[in-house]
Design a protein around this nucleic acid. Sequence first.
DNA 1: ATGGTCGGTTGCCGA
Length: 285
Amino acid sequence: MPITVATWNINSIRARLPEACAWLREAQPDIVLLQETKAEDHNFPAMEIEDLGYNLALHGQKTYNGVAILSKHRIEDVTRGLPTLPENTDARYIEGLISLKGIRDWGLGIGKDILTSNPQPLIPTLRVASIYVPNGGEVGSEKFGQKLRFLEALRLHAETLLLQDEMLALGGDYNVAPADMDVYAPAALRGTTCFHPEEQKRLRALEYLGLTDAFRARYPDRQQFSWWDYRSSGWEHNKGMRIDHLLLSPQAADALEDAGIDDTPRGKPKASDHAPVWCRLGVGC
DNA sequence: ATGGTCGGTTGCCGA
């Protein structure tokens, strides 16, 4: 049974609740990683989301930031905040272990890896994180430095996570477009926030650890954006960037069946400025 | 060379 994992910068869960619920009902993702929920945990519209069949893990904050994990499967082992950046109290990182109970018959080896005979967990798991990388403000500003340091701290933590040899999906608003084809006007935008070589270098450093950009791995030549500026009618002119990503561990990338960006919610009234990015992983039989 | 538009609990700031 395949499972679908999506990441979506929702830009306020309360302002966007009907639109978010409509998409959840329509797309039926198993796991959703939300950013910019902009709500403290006691203000998160939990019942409305739970009624759609999701368990929640929240790391909220007033006015700014806020991340969440929605999952149709159990969420265990939740961590809030990047362990490698303890001084940062912004709600920009939440991690959890999804127990894929009920998805039986992991692989062909009945509890063993068919080639190595290594014992495999009886219940398959997928570790996920919902990540909201700082926007960075002006290039060279204090905020820009914080963005670069956040990306470095994320790399350091990802290094530890990858030692676990698990299925892992690090999803979120990275606020970095990886390459020229990921922005509408590379020449004009080069060196600006979200398309700066120092940001791209740090995003690639994550990939060098062995993490795979799900969308780009599946569609090497496709130009599709995940964010369009409200200002200057970015959506209407398709002036966008691909800055939301799902980075997969080797174990998850091996299970990658498909990926995409669902830009239909972006064209609707009261839309977030970001579109959901998703991938489908083949888990079990 | 600078504005445009959103969301928050707001008379501005962050994106």
